[in-house]
């Protein structure tokens, strides 16, 4: 039997939107693949940039962060700050040579159970196609985990975090919350610190 790979997926869902959407998907009996394990956080703004990296280092093949739609954060701007953290995670994954598609940040409102299901089903499918962490990347699990652990350590370092503060600060000042702008801000502000990451 050439069954498709059954990926391990870790999710960080905000209490107010995505976690509620996941609950309402349950109440509505919308079915989705049983690969996701959820950690509830009050706001995606709580997402420490090291969490997704640690998740991948701890056996996840994909990480999903789910929050409120842009502009609808229960705490005003938390999901925008989450985008800043997410940009860093994407940068680091690229640097290590891990497919960026293994980390997804997306939105579903409390009223959008079916949308949550759609997002999770598609993400699970995509990660299944990528296969076990390392396979699509052509790396051994040991190598990839030690690199991820290093990246997580770097995400906790003062240098990188000050870069993120600056990126967040600029984002709030310009009030430009597009993913591409945020991503280039993070690249710029963390360039030096990221350069030191081997």
């Amino acid at each position: 039997m050439s069954a498709e790979y059954n990926p391990h997926i870790l999710g960080f869902l905000c209490n107010w939107c995505c976690y509620t959407a996941a609950d309402s998907a349950g109440v509505g009996r919308y079915q989705y693949p049983p690969n996701l394990r959820v950690i509830r956080i009050m706001c995606t703004g709580r997402l420490d940039p090291s969490f997704p990296l640690e998740g991948l280092a701890n056996g996840a093949d994909g990480i999903f962060v789910g929050g409120c739609h842009p502009g609808e954060c229960h705490y005003q701007d938390g999901n925008y700050h989450a985008l800043v953290s997410a940009s860093l995670v994407h940068e680091m994954l690229e640097k290590i040579g891990i497919s960026k598609e293994r980390f997804l940040i997306d939105w579903a409102s409390a009223a959008e159970g079916p949308n949550f299901v759609k997002i999770i089903t598609a993400f699970t499918q995509r990660v299944a196609e990528l296969g076990p962490l390392g396979k699509a990347e052509g790396k051994s699990p040991e190598e990839i985990r030690s690199q991820l652990a290093q990246a997580a350590e770097a995400a906790r370092s003062r240098k990188i975090r000050i870069g993120l503060i600056n990126a967040s600060r600029e984002m709030m000042k310009k009030r430009d919350f597009s993913r591409t702008t945020i991503s280039s801000m993070v690249q710029e502000k963390c360039a030096k610190a990221l350069g030191e990451l081997v």
């Binding site: 706001c43 703004g45 420490d48 700050h81 003062r158």
Partner: peptide
């Protein structure tokens, strides 16, 4: 209100959240 943005942005991980601490999420 417990959102945790401060904790996620603290450069020295000096800030932690009640019931959603760094260590407990880890």
């Amino acid at each position: 209100k417990g959102c945790g943005v401060c904790a996620a942005r603290c450069p020295t991980l000096a800030i932690d959240m009640g019931r959603f601490t760094y260590d407990s999420i880890m």
